[in-house]
């Protein structure tokens, strides 16, 4: 009876083949598709590049031009959505887009170039303007001027302050 049973089952089941690529398919809520950076929101902090397991997001700093480049390469992305989880500005998110095939590798890159601010002490570009503004919102007013300095100059200043304070205390 077995093999006839299978034949009846196939007939009773009807068509199971979907019409794709001639008709779109439905995707469930929470599908992890193409990651997209919103260039207006991105602050260039680099948290996504730090957590990305395959290093599909890479950060390059061009000190001469004063730009920080965030380069998202879809051709290496594993669609794990860790970047979405850690982004403090909610700038990167995974869309439902899965039709990502491209005829050249260049088409798989999304590049965001952000302007960097020069240090008030040494004049070296050290962080993006947007990231500094983002931090400034969270800092108390009296600490904000510290943001004008790069980490090196800031450390020097801090040690100077402490020396002065210690001397006064004595």
């Amino acid at each position: 009876m077995g093999r006839f049973g299978l034949i009846f089952k196939s007939i009773a089941k009807g068509r199971v083949t979907e019409k794709y690529p001639f008709a779109p398919i439905e995707l469930p809520e929470g599908f992890r598709g193409k990651p997209e950076i919103d260039p207006e929101k991105c602050i260039g902090c680099g948290a996504c590049a730090t957590v990305c397991p395959p290093s599909a997001i890479q950060i390059h700093v061009d000190e001469e031009q004063g730009y920080k480049t965030i380069d998202l390469f879809l051709g290496r992305c594993i669609f794990c959505a860790r970047c979405e989880e850690v982004c403090p500005a909610e700038a990167i998110r995974l869309t439902k887009e899965f039709e990502l095939a491209a005829a050249s590798e260049e088409d798989l890159h999304q590049v965001v170039k952000l302007k960097m601010a020069k240090c008030a002490g040494c004049g070296r570009p050290f962080d993006t303007v947007r990231h500094l503004q983002f931090i400034a919102e969270k800092l108390p007013e009296e600490q904000k001027p510290m943001l004008a300095l790069c980490p090196d100059c800031r450390a020097k200043l801090a040690s100077k302050i402490l020396t002065v304070a210690a001397r006064r205390h004595r």
């Binding site: 469930p28 929470g30 599908f31 992890r32 594993i78 669609f79 794990c80 959505a81 995974l94």
Partner: peptide, 15 residues
């Protein structure tokens, strides 16, 4: 595979 996709967002490599 559809169940996996609905629960995790991917058919394989649930991550």
């Amino acid at each position: 595979m559809d169940i996996a996709e609905a629960l995790t967002g991917n058919r394989k490599t649930y991550g």
